[in-house]
Design a protein around this nucleic acid. Sequence first.
DNA 1: GCTTAGAGTTCACTAGTTGGACATAGGCGG
DNA 2: CCGCCTATGTCCAACTAGTGAACTCTAAGC
Lengths: 399, 399
Amino acid sequence: METPGSQSSLHRANLERVVRAVRLAGSLTQAEIARTTGLSAATVSNIVRELKDGGTVEVTPTSAGGRRARSVSLSGDAGIVIGVDFGHTHLRVAVGNLAHQVLAEESEPLDVDASAAQGFDRAEELVSRLIAATGVDRSKIAGVGLGVPGPIDVESGTLGSTAILPGWTGAKPAEELRGRLGVPVYVDNDANLGALGELVWGSGRGVKDLAYIKVASGVGAGLVIDGKIYRGPGGTAGEIGHITLDESGPVCRCGNRGCLETFAAARYVLPLLQSSHGTDLTMEGVVRLAREGDPGCRRVIADVGRHIGSGVANLCNLLNPSRVVLGGDLAEAGELVLGPIRESVGRYAIPSAARQLSVLPGALGGRAEVLGALALALSEMGDSTLLDGSLSAGAPAFT
Amino acid sequence: METPGSQSSLHRANLERVVRAVRLAGSLTQAEIARTTGLSAATVSNIVRELKDGGTVEVTPTSAGGRRARSVSLSGDAGIVIGVDFGHTHLRVAVGNLAHQVLAEESEPLDVDASAAQGFDRAEELVSRLIAATGVDRSKIAGVGLGVPGPIDVESGTLGSTAILPGWTGAKPAEELRGRLGVPVYVDNDANLGALGELVWGSGRGVKDLAYIKVASGVGAGLVIDGKIYRGPGGTAGEIGHITLDESGPVCRCGNRGCLETFAAARYVLPLLQSSHGTDLTMEGVVRLAREGDPGCRRVIADVGRHIGSGVANLCNLLNPSRVVLGGDLAEAGELVLGPIRESVGRYAIPSAARQLSVLPGALGGRAEVLGALALALSEMGDSTLLDGSLSAGAPAFT
DNA sequence: GCTTAGAGTTCACTAGTTGGACATAGGCGG
DNA sequence: CCGCCTATGTCCAACTAGTGAACTCTAAGC
C-alpha cells in the first residue's frame, strides 16, 4: 500500500492469491493450494498460519480419508456481504458469505411511490433483521451491493432519469446506504446486476461474456464482458430496448419509432390483449395463460420473442457473446418465447457469430438482481478486504 | 515465469514498471523514476544499471541545467516492432521503435488473387528492405503485428472465410510469418487493427473505448474496449455490416435481407451510379466527384451516411462508446458523410447514450491498419519482452 | 510390522528492497 | 573566487520474505 512495489506488497499479493484460490474452490488442502497458486509448500504453510491467526480462514483438522490433509476454507464468519435490490414493486435483501453461499434472503412489497427515505428505512430494517437471523456479527459486513431499477451513474452515484422512481429525485442511494450501514456500498442498475447474478449463480456459470435481457415494463440488457460488468464510458451501455427495428413503427417513450421496446415491453404489449382478455392483465398473467394454452397469449408471446430475437441478433453481430440469458417475467414462458427468439437470431445474425451462442432462460427468476448485488459486493471488495483483519490482528504478534 | 509469486517475479515486475514509466514519459532521471514508480532510489539505481547493461535503456550522462541528473531513455535500438497489413489490393509494412515512433513505412500493390506463398514472399522482402533502410539489427525485432482482410480466429490463427482472399484457404498467416522471420507474430483482422491504430496514433487518442467503422467493399467494425481489442468469445464481434436495418431490404451476401452492408458497402452502392457515371467507378471516385459537387454522388454518399448512422445508433445504444471513427475510402468524404451519420445517430440513439459520443473521420487514412498492426505488436509483447535481453545479458555478470 | 507415500513443518540460504550514510556537482550568496 | 546548500546517484548493512531440502507424521498396503 505505502510501498507499492516491494516485498511487503508481494506478501500481500500472495495472501490474496491464496484467499482467492480458497474462495473459488470452496476448500482446499495446503498442498492443493501450493499446486494451484504455484507457491511453494513452505510459503503456503506460513501464509495459512497467518490467515488462521487473523481469523480469515479456518482449518478443519482432518477431512476425508486421506493421510493427514488439513482442509483450509474461508471461515464462515470471515465476512459477509449483503445484496439489496430495489425493484418497481418490491424490496429484496440477501445475505451471503464469502464462500458464495446465500445465508438468508427475504423480499417484501415496496410501493414505487414511496419516498426515498422511506425506502431506505425499510431496507435498513430488513438488512438488520436478516443479519440478526443469521447470527453473524454486524462488524463482519465486508460490503453491500445495491440495485436500483433505473439508470444510475456509477461514478457519481446519482440516479439518472427519475421517471421510474418518483420521489427519488437526485438521490444518491449508495451514499445514503453507506451512511446508514457504515460499510462500502456498490451500486448498479437492475439489468447489470441481473447479468452478474446469472453469471455467478445462474444460467451463466462457466462463461465469461454474457448478455442478460430483462423484459419487464421496459426492455434492458446487462452486459458482462470478460467477467466484469460493462457499463460503457457514459454508463449507459446495454440499452437494447431502444435499438430501432422498424423506422416507421410505433412511437416509443424515448421519442423514436419502432424501438424493440415497443414490440416487447409490457407497457406496449399488454394493451393488445386488453380488449379480449380484460384490462387488469399483467405480463405474469399473459405468461400463465399462454402456458395453459390460450392462443392469443401464445401468439403475442411468440411475436415478442421474434422481435427480441431481432434485437439479440444485432447484439450478437456486434458483441458476439457466448450466452444470452432472458430474465424478467417473460422468462417464465420458457420455450414459448425462447423458440421464436432462437429462430429470429438464426435468421438475422451472421452464422459465425451465432454459432456458439446459447439462449437460455434465467435460472434465478426474480432473485437474479439481489444475487447480482451480492456478487457485485463480492467482486468489488476484492480479496484484499479480507486481509485487513488478519493483517491488523497479525501485527501485534511481531511487536 | 517459473515461480509466479516470488521475489524474482517481483524484481521482474519492478523492471517492467521502470520500463513502462520510461516508455510513457520518453525520458526520465532516476530520481523521477523513483518518484513515479514509488520505488526507492536505491532500487531504481540497481534496476537502471541492470537495464543499461542489458541494452534496454540508454543513459545520457548530462542533460539539462540541473545538478547532475542523468536522463534515462529507452535505447533507440532496444527493439523494433513491425506491422504488416495485407489489404485487398495492397501490402503495407511499417517499422517502428518502442517509443511509438514510426521509423519507416512503405506500401506496394498486391494482387488479391496472388497465392498466399507469393504474398508472404513479397511481405518478407518488403520487411527486409525496410529494416535494412532503418539500419537496425534484425535481432532487435521484438514482435510483428499482422493484419489480414478477413475474419481470422486469433486463437488458432486460421483464416475463416476464404471468399475474400482466394488462394489463402486454410493458411495460418501468423505461423507462416513467424517461420519466415523467426519472431513472435500477432495477427488480427483489418477492422480491429484499424481501431487500434486510430486509438494509438489517430483520432482515438485519449479515449479508451472506440468503435472503428471501416467502409470498403464490405462494412466492418473494430471495437476497442478499455484499451484492448474486443473480439468476443467466438472472435467475430464487430460485424456491424450485418445488422438488419430493413427486414425486406436487398438480399445481402450473408443471406439475410436489408443488412447495413447492402446500403453502405461499395459492392452494393457503386451499381447505383453505374448507369449515370460509367461502370469503372470506384468508391474513391465517387468520393472525389462528390467533393467536386456532383449531386448524384453527394446524394448517394449522404444516403450511405444515414444508413451507417442507423447502425452506429444501435451500436451506441448497446455499447455506448465514447468515440466512433470512420475509416476506409469513405472517410475521405468528410462532412458529406459524417453529417448524415451524426444526424441519424441523433435521431435513433437514446440521448443519454449519444450525449458524449463524438463521430470523427479517421486521421490515418489507409495507414490505420499497418499502424494498428504496429500497436498490436507493441501491446501484445508487453514490456517484458524488452527485458529478455537484459536478463540474459545480465546473467553472466553474476557468475 | 514394515514400507511407502503424501502432507505439513522447520531451517538454512538466497533474492531483492530499503533506509541511511556518503560522495558528487552545480547554483547561489557573500 | 570560495564555501554552503541542495538534489542526484551510489554503497552498505539490515531486514523481509520465499525456496529447496531435510524432517516428521500419519494412514494405507503388503
